[in-house]
Design a protein around this nucleic acid. Structure first.
Length: 422
RNA sequence: GGAGAGGUGGCCGAGUGGUUGAAGGCGCUAGUCUCGAAAACUAGUAUAGUCGUAAGGCUAUCGAGGGUUCGAAUCCCUCCCUCUCCGCCA
């Protein structure tokens, strides 16, 4: 969420940013009104508390001298009641204010193009060329079935649609990619973590999954646990409610986890094969950085993700998302899309975002400036490096042979132990 | 899951109703001393909100929330977490 003080002091900037995101700026005024009301009540309540405290001190003094102090009890009883009711009103106002603040999106960075639809995203880089082949390429779902490396029907039997089973070389390819991605992340300075795959409500709120995106998560209701939709959730919450040292920054972490997404409301959209599944593997990069460096860190994060695609030899391009296509909590985002020849389309395999202080404020992650002074909120960023299933789809389609075999990219050989599937 | 113990500042730890935001120690920072360092000594050392141009004031916070009371770190209730023993178990 945004800082209420920042909103108070820069109401117009915030409203303008909210509008660019395609959200309703009226919430900003709502927040300001609640804030005004809150501070008014707070001043009143604190006055009464100050009175209570000073009277209490006097009572203590009198009692220690053996004097009678019952004269003020009657009045203080009333003051106590009044304080209690003001505190209740305040709690209600604060809860309302927080809810309104949570409903105000992060505002786009000035370098983000203004736009409303995905068509207005800008292609800012392209790498490689589509594979040149002289036969009709097949989509991956046909290839994997023939090769017997991914079993969709049995996944349906075991769990349901969107839960593929990787078998034999398919499983090994998956594992090889995970190890490859993690090794590269480690080489780029990221510390590997293996976090829990379910989180509590506080963590899900910290990264912004709750309250808005509750429908997208699987919930273990008995224990109020949420299956993670991305490693971003547990990893970013690693430092929730902590104060870091400025010298520790930037902190770079990577994590492999399975990701669980209900994908409610997306039925029929790109759902064939591995394009959209309910459980998938992903290696995620997360950074906690000094506010002055977060946009440089975004560029290097993107470079870290791009390097993987280059090593795999996959033709891709980079999209700079327009203001309207940014996520609620993001200020700037790049999507990496890989060309998949069998489907003749671009598949999103990574999304690299800067959240500035928006997530960190919700999570209360701060750092103590080395020069002294008050703790400041860190900036957080994250990016996929990379999401597995679409990479698997792209590899299988782009590296297919006329006979329906798949050549494994060279960088993976040391991980797979085989060079061809089929 | 059963029984018991406990959760106090960066850490250890005192505190069972009244100037206790909280003794003492450790750590950390600065200063004195020293050629320099150590030691010693002195001082400082939480977070947040709010008011104020500022200096500074006020309020809150002793796991969380509620209650009792003129007054709660201290008493009561609920919840969370940690530890020990037993049970179960990869």
């Amino acid at each position: 969420m945004l800082d209420i003080k920042f909103i108070r002091e820069h109401a117009e900037i915030v409203k303008e940013g909210v509008t660019r995101k395609g959200e309703d700026p009226a919430r900003v005024d709502e927040a300001l009104a609640l804030d005004e009301k809150r501070r008014h009540k707070l001043a009143h309540a604190e006055q009464l508390k100050a009175r209570k405290n000073s009277v209490s001190a006097e009572v203590a003094k009198k009692k220690s001298k053996g004097e009678d102090a019952t004269a003020v009890f009657e009045e203080m009883r009333k003051v106590a009641d009044e304080i209690k009711s003001l505190d209740h009103e305040l709690a209600a106002i604060e809860a309302d204010l927080r809810n309104v603040l949570l409903a105000i999106p992060n505002i786009p960075h000035p370098s983000v193009p203004v736009g409303r639809t995905p068509e207005e995203n800008q292609i800012v880089a392209t790498w490689g060329e589509p594979p040149v082949i002289d036969f009709k390429p097949k989509p991956h779902w046909e290839l994997v079935e023939k090769l017997g490396i991914i079993d969709f029907p049995r996944g349906v039997k075991i769990t349901g649609a969107g839960f593929p089973v990787y078998v034999g070389k398919g499983a090994k390819l998956e594992r090889a990619l995970i190890n490859f991605f993690l090794d590269k992340a480690e080489a780029a300075g990221y510390t590997e973590v293996m976090p829990p795959h379910v989180v509590n409500a506080a963590s899900a709120t910290g990264t912004g999954q709750l309250p808005d995106k509750e429908d997208q998560m699987y919930v273990a209701t008995k224990d109020e646990f949420y299956l993670i939709p991305t490693a971003e959730v547990p990893v970013t919450n690693f430092y929730r409610d902590e104060i870091l040292g400025e010298k520790q920054l930037p902190i770079k972490m990577c994590a492999y986890t399975p990701c669980f997404r209900r994908e409610a409301g997306s039925y029929g959209k790109d759902v064939r094969g591995l394009n959209r599944v309910h459980q998938f593997d992903k290696v995620e990069l997360v950074k906690f950085v000094h506010p002055s460096t977060s946009y440089d860190e975004l560029e290097s994060l993107r470079a870290d993700a791009e390097r993987l695609l280059q090593k795999l030899g996959l033709h891709y391009h980079v999209l700079l998302m327009c203001s309207g296509d940014l996520g609620f909590t993001q200020t700037k985002k790049y999507d990496l899309e890989v060309w998949s020849i069998g489907q003749q389309k671009w598949l999103e395999v990574s999304s690299c975002s800067n959240f500035e202080s928006y997530q960190a404020r919700r999570m209360n992650i701060r750092f103590k400036p080395a020069a002294g002074g008050k703790p400041e909120i860190v900036h957080t960023l994250n990016g996929s490096a990379l999401a597995l299933p679409r990479i698997v789809a792209a590899i299988i389609e782009n590296y297919q042979t006329p006979e329906g075999k798949v050549i494994v990219p060279k960088v993976l050989h040391q991980y797979t132990g085989f060079e061809v599937i089929g």
